[in-house]
Write a protein that binds this DNA or RNA. Structure first.
Lengths: 150, 150
DNA sequence: GCCGAGCTTTACGTTAACGTAAAGTGCTTG
DNA sequence: CAAGCACTTTACGTTAACGTAAAGCTCGGC
């Protein structure tokens, strides 16, 4: 939170990277500005399942998207467990039974409600920030008038 | 996160509560659906400073607003430390020096940027949820056709 | 006078989400 | 072939944000 640098989040595609299709853990880490440790942790928590070439991990486009969605979920305040819940059901969808699917719809509605509340919170917070800022500017201005006006 | 119940957050004002003006910790806790422990913790972290009548804490309207803003900040993913940073500067504003004020403006800009990113995240997440949901409904529909259509 | 409800302090416990250090594997480059 | 670099596993450490348990005030009601 409160990073000074604006994270790219979606790397500037050189217009050819659809060739490569695979990434190392370090590449992904740099892309999304996280550490390799974080990515391994997400795998351990069942959020990623990269191909294994012997001991080495090989990440494909699918994994990159997964990671992107995971990080987005995190920024929105979802826990890894919550994110995994959706991701797992999404994977199990083709042969998911009705009960599972209805559960998934429940979860989605829940997350939607969460987003709605966040939107409202953001609106309110925005106004608060406006207030604080204008007050700060006022005081700042009065300080400068004081020192220049003598 | 993922509460089924829609938190009131702003209690239905009976049209007379401006008389009381003070609250116990338990009342506040019920209002905002947190535990007293949480409220004491926020005080310990410098986010609240209720009046003390001997040993007892007495919360006024000001404290209630503080708590409300704190919880809102939390829902938006700010840490207590970040929230305190703003709150403290806000309190120190009347006699804040220029350097402090400029720092405050920086922080505010930072938080604003954060909100912007969250808005974008929410938009994207919303579309994802739409996708997942429509897919789920499709599968669900096909399942029902299968069983009814025999 | 004592009982229960609600408050208080003190202090140790818990969980999520990683950080960090140690020690080993594997490739490619001089 | 040795060195270096990026990767790997294992495992213990850390931080934030509380939870929980124990033990003690305080006050209104019976």
């Amino acid at each position: 939170m409160s990073k000074r640098t604006s994270a790219p989040q979606e790397p500037a595609n050189g217009g050819l990277s659809r060739q490569r299709r695979t990434y190392t853990i370090g590449e992904l880490a740099r892309m999304f500005e996280v550490t390799p440790r974080t990515i391994r942790f997400y795998e351990q928590e069942g959020l990623l399942a990269p191909e294994r070439r012997g001991q080495a991990r090989i990440y494909h486009e699918k994994d990159r998207v997964r990671l992107k969605l995971t990080l987005r979920g995190k920024r929105l305040g979802f826990s890894l467990a919550e994110i995994r819940e959706v991701v797992e059901m999404y994977d199990a969808m083709p042969d998911g039974n009705a009960r599972q699917l209805k559960r998934l719809l429940e979860i989605l509605a829940d997350k939607r409600a969460n987003l709605e509340r966040q939107l409202e919170d953001i609106r309110l917070m925005h106004r608060e920030l406006d207030d604080v800022e204008s007050r700060a500017r006022e005081v700042l201005a009065s300080l400068e008038t004081e020192s220049t006006g003598r």
